[in-house]
């Protein structure tokens, strides 16, 4: 296998985040009160083991990233060459707005907006069609799950 000349910044960053997360878990564990009982081990042992495991995996992956890249990665350089950042942002906006809106605008309105934004994020050029489908689908889902399955979802200003 040929070694890559450059170090992949993403691979290294993820490895370091895992290392940091492992250290955080181990550090936080010290704040857990230890009560051992008969077992001689309490609520601290597993967090310590898991924190250590995360650190070791982070170190392992960091070493791989620095020595020719992560092993056995699929050949997807072409796939990842031109990311569609706009699509990513539109979908993110959809999910975050849904979170903000659902409380007072209700499920149907929030979901309609989410649907239109996600469809746009996937490059849909037919906003009117999307809006129509969004309203119908959101309403069907709302009534199916609240009336049919007893789930509780906020109705918003138009419901009652």
């Amino acid at each position: 296998m040929s070694t890559r000349a450059r170090i992949d910044a993403g691979e290294l960053l993820i490895s370091l985040v895992l290392l940091a997360l492992g250290s955080f878990v181990a550090f936080e564990t010290q704040g857990i009160a230890e009560t051992q009982g008969y077992a001689q081990v309490g609520p601290r042992l597993f967090p310590y083991v898991i924190g250590t495991g995360l650190m070791l995996c982070g170190a392992w992956l960091a070493w791989q990233a620095l020595s020719g890249g992560w092993r056995a990665m699929p050949e997807e350089a072409e796939t990842h060459a031109a990311p569609d950042r706009m699509g990513f942002l539109l979908i993110s906006a959809g999910v975050v707005l849904h979170m903000v809106l659902i409380g007072w605008a209700g499920f149907i309105l929030a979901s309609t907006l989410l649907f239109v934004l996600v469809a746009r994020g996937f490059g849909s050029k037919k906003p009117v069609r999307d809006l129509g489908i969004a309203v119908v689908l959101s309403s069907i889902v709302y009534f199916l799950f609240t009336r049919g399955l007893g789930l509780s979802l906020p109705a918003g200003p138009f419901g009652g």
Binding site: V95, H98, V100, F107, S111, L114, D130, L137, S152
Partner: peptide, 26 residues
């Protein structure tokens, strides 16, 4: 594809929010 994934996310947010009606889960 746009309609398929938009639909998937409606169900996804419904499932997460439906657990205990908390924006925190979203």
């Amino acid at each position: 594809r746009p309609l398929l994934y938009a639909g998937i996310l409606i169900f996804a947010t419904m499932g997460a929010y439906g657990i205990r009606n908390s924006w925190f889960d979203l």
